[in-house]
Computed example of a mutant assay.
Amino acid sequence: MNKTELVEVVSKNAAISKAEAQKVVTATLDAIVAGVVSDGKVILPGFGTFETRQRSARNGRNPRTGEVIKIKATKAPAFKPGKGMKDAVAKKKK
């Protein structure tokens, strides 16, 4: 499912126009990003946790030359699914 499909589902389930659903989805995603950036964590019980994780510096290898390069430490966004999501995915029939 992509963002456009998500907007359509929200529009249908909430009985609102697609334009309103677009605003809701965009505002929700912007709020999650802002929360992760400022607080480092956004917790949605039953759904999951969006957080920032620290990646340590490490050595890598240039695939073209084989030369060893240093990769700097960085922060990366991460998502940890909650129990509700895990259970829903586990029950999905193939």
Rank of each mutant, 00 (worst) to 15 (best):
D39H: 13
T52E: 06
G35K: 09
I32E: 09
V25A: 08
F50C: 07
A76I: 14
R64A: 02
T26P: 11
P45A: 05
A31K: 10
S38Y: 07
V33S: 11
V68W: 07
R55D: 12
V36Q: 01
E67F: 05
F47V: 02
A73P: 03
V42D: 02
T28Q: 04
K41L: 11
A27F: 04
V68K: 06
P45I: 09
G35E: 06
V25N: 08
G60H: 10
P63E: 03
S56D: 15
R64N: 11
E51V: 01
G35R: 12
L29P: 12
I43S: 11
S56H: 07
A73Q: 07
T74V: 06
F47Q: 07
R53W: 12
T49Q: 09
V68R: 12
L44T: 00
I69T: 15
Q54F: 10
V68D: 09
A57C: 13
S38N: 09
Q54E: 10
V25H: 03
F50P: 02
L44V: 08
A27C: 00
A31N: 05
F47L: 05
L44E: 02
A76P: 09
A57D: 14
L44R: 10
E67Q: 03
G46K: 03
G40H: 01
T26N: 09
A31T: 11
K75E: 01
I32Y: 06
I71W: 10
R64E: 05
G35H: 11
K41N: 02
A76W: 12
P63W: 01
E51Q: 00
G60Y: 10
T26R: 15
S38C: 12
R61A: 01
T65A: 04
P45Y: 04
L29R: 13
K75H: 14
A31D: 02
Q54P: 15
V68Q: 08
R61T: 08
A34K: 00
G60A: 01
V37A: 13
F47Y: 04
P45L: 04
K70P: 07
V42T: 05
T52S: 00
T74F: 04
N62Q: 02
Q54H: 14
R53L: 14
F50T: 02
G48Q: 01
V25Q: 14
V42N: 01
I71N: 02
T52M: 03
P63D: 07
T52R: 05
T52L: 07
I69W: 15
A57T: 13
D30F: 02
T52F: 03
V68E: 13
T52I: 08
G66L: 11
I43H: 15
R55V: 07
P45Q: 08
A73D: 11
T49E: 04
N62V: 06
I43Y: 11
T52A: 08
S56Y: 15
K41Q: 15
K70G: 04
V37K: 13
G40A: 00
D39T: 10
V37D: 14
T65S: 00
K72S: 10
D30N: 10
K75M: 14
N59D: 05
G46Y: 02
I69Y: 05
E51S: 12
D39V: 03
S56I: 12
P63F: 03
T28N: 09
I43N: 15
E67M: 06
P45S: 11
D39A: 09
K75C: 11
S56T: 06
